[in-house]
Amino acid sequence: MVEFVDIALLVLLGITAFSILRQKNLFAAVMMAGIYSLLSAGLFVVMDAVDVAFTEAAVGAGISTILMLGTLALVGHSEHQPQHRPILPLFVVILTGAVLVYGTLDIPQFGDASNPAHHHVAPHYLEESEHEIGIPNVVTSVLASYRGYDTMGETTVIFAALVGVLLLLSLGPRPRRVVSNGQRISDTDSGKPVSEGGVEEAQEDTLQISPEEKTLGDTNG
């Protein structure tokens, strides 16, 4: 029964992934990506990884989809037909796939309890964590205690990503300035950003805005 569910979910995942690839409407593709995440969450439950399944369902299928939909609202949702022939990418993909399949040939069989992955530190966690940490869920005790620094590093990564997103989105297109004769025309007197200048000129220029000017530009725009 477990084998059947496993195979069925993997086949459904394959079909979903393939239809995302074929889909020209980005809105539909994002929805299919949500379905893909949810199916993989189901597969994680079948493979005993219940904590991972929660996270994948909440973060992968929920937050990712919302982020993508928000992006689509800003950038539009139709994809153009690619102009170049897909022969080179197809060749690269088939070659990589073949090498990976070759690599699986001497990998330990699925579900075998004697696999090397189960013989290093995992038995210690499974035997001792109840006495050492006192939490019945082993994943929680490893995540929060044995590998606590790892989780702290993860938090740092999320913080860095947050700062990156805020910087990228808050710079915005607002204070566009035109450079003429090497001198920058300030727009602070008029109270409105000068936006006639081409995008190319404005781009290099936004990078040179000093902090005070940027604050002014933000309050104006």
């Binding site: 991972v52 996270t55 992955a117 994943v139 995540l143 990503a161």
Partner: peptide
């Protein structure tokens, strides 16, 4: 089942979402 891959992937899922947000 082995809990270590679960822990690693919990971290990876969250980092993956952070990457796609950027």
């Amino acid at each position: 089942s082995n809990p270590i891959p679960h822990v690693l992937i919990l971290t990876a899922i969250v980092v993956g979402v952070a990457t796609s947000a950027v």
